[in-house]
Amino acid sequence: MIKLQNLYCFYEEQIILENITQEFPKHLSILGPNGSGKSTLAKAICALTPHHGEISLDGTNIGSYTAKERAKKIAYIPTKLEFYDEFLTVEEFVLLGRFAHKKSFFDYSDKDRSLAKQYMGLLHIAHLSHQTLSSLSSGETALVLIAQALTQESQIIIFDEPTANLDPKNAKIIARHIKQLQQTHQTVLITHDIHLAHFMNNPVLFLKNQNAHYFETDFFTDENLSKLYDVSIKSLAVQYD
């Protein structure tokens, strides 16, 4: 379970989040305008960016875990896939999720390989195995990233704007996978996609002006959304169900 206590986050010396105290429920959606610090918060939780205050995971400060221990607890799925090694195949890339579980200095085991295959099968991307990363479409890339995170077999998965680059149909596919994964994992969903958040129907942490507002329920009313986002919204249209 993730717990924030008097948390301050910074981005290039500018204060982004100020004095946030929040215990995460099993599933949480984080929403907020551009630049409100959603991704910064996620990266702080993964110990990628410095912060003040305390972030604890199952009662232990996140800084006290080794990188491998942390990887076994949290998987973070970025919006975009960045890579330099252009000859990496999808299969090899998904297998990298097993790094924290593999014996140091040794190759990935047969079990690691069969797990990677299994999760690619689960997401219906087994046919992409031998393609290189650069040949994938945005929809395929999103699925490959999820497959890699699943091989980490972590208890928590953080999705950072998983539908940002996707057309409605691919967004729906991803949305359904996330919903299904909520049965086996704790999830944190960062998104601008109000439809997606509504479909998940989890408690919402809304970030704005360095502060956080927690909504257990009653977040997705036209009135509330219009007030928070400062635009008029009339009953959400796209249906992911």
Partner: peptide, 24 residues
């Protein structure tokens, strides 16, 4: 060679390597 898999992860991205458990 001993660090070949760490290097493989760092060759994808630095952030990604850290997230997968590399003491980069």
């Amino acid at each position: 060679y001993a660090y070949r898999f760490e290097l493989q992860l760092l060759g994808v991205s630095q952030e990604g390597a850290k997230l997968k458990g590399v003491e980069s």
